[in-house]
Amino acid sequence: MSVETTGAPRAFALPLRRKRLGAELPGWIAYALAAPSMILLCLLMLLPIAVMLVMSLTNYRFGDLSYAFIGVENYLDLADDRTFWRALSNTFVYVAIVVPGSVALGLALAVMTTGLRRGRKIYQMIFFLPVTATVVAMATVWKYLLHGTIGPFNLVLQSLGLPAIDFFSDPDLALTGLAIINIWSLAGFNMVLFAAGLTAIPSELYDAAEVDGLSEPLDRFFSVTLPLLGPTTLFVIVTSTITAFKVFDTVAVITRGGPRGSTDVLLYTTYLEGFSYFRMGSAAAMTVVFLAIIMVFALLQTWVLDKKVHY
């Protein structure tokens, strides 16, 4: 509401215009309500990201008194860094095991449990239990469970006359071992998401399928359930991918990247670079790569969510 003083015809309209109406809420209310969050958003999120982007262009090391801008050298170094590439490829291999495993298992559990006449609740509770367990505590348990000599898993194998498998000392198996733990802890979560998707399928469709002669459970699964769960499945895949991509706790507790770098994953490498070796510049560059990949997944997730809504 600007106050204008020119022109006679406007002059008589002014008193009307300038009067604040009681029905209008003062403009500052909304800002006052949002201010604490806006300030925190800037201090905890936007500013740090900006600092990190700048830092990735420097050779700053924690504790150094000076640093220099070195352009994209950190990124070029990463491109040549065999350790970094190994961490990246390990992460993707890990994702490639965890996602299909946890999604398929989650779907199977959801379909099986919701089809039950009795006991659905107790089964779903059991399968969800690992989701609620503290990852670090369970990692400790798994480490013992899969221990090469005294682990109960191997004792059971041996008692069945099978050779022992030492997951976490074998560079070829360590990543798979970690992936199994993640599948175990993620399947129940995915089961709940799928079960929610299943409730959304109208029961008339099953009646229709039956009338059309699809009376076998498997026929119904492939002709009705799976196609209608399509959007849910896409969503579960993307969510699981992001979760698996952020693997850190089990690596930190069980393998520490070993044996021989076989479980070195992106977040763990970045963590070491930044908080063990204090090479902030290069750690920042790694984080930028991590953020870029996460953003791709996030965009995918938004896109999938949109699709899910419009289905």
Binding site: L16, R17, L21, G22, A23, E24
Partner: peptide, 12 residues
Amino acid sequence: LRIIAGLLPQTS
């Protein structure tokens, strides 16, 4: 009605 109640500002 909402303008009378003061829940909505009138334009003029």
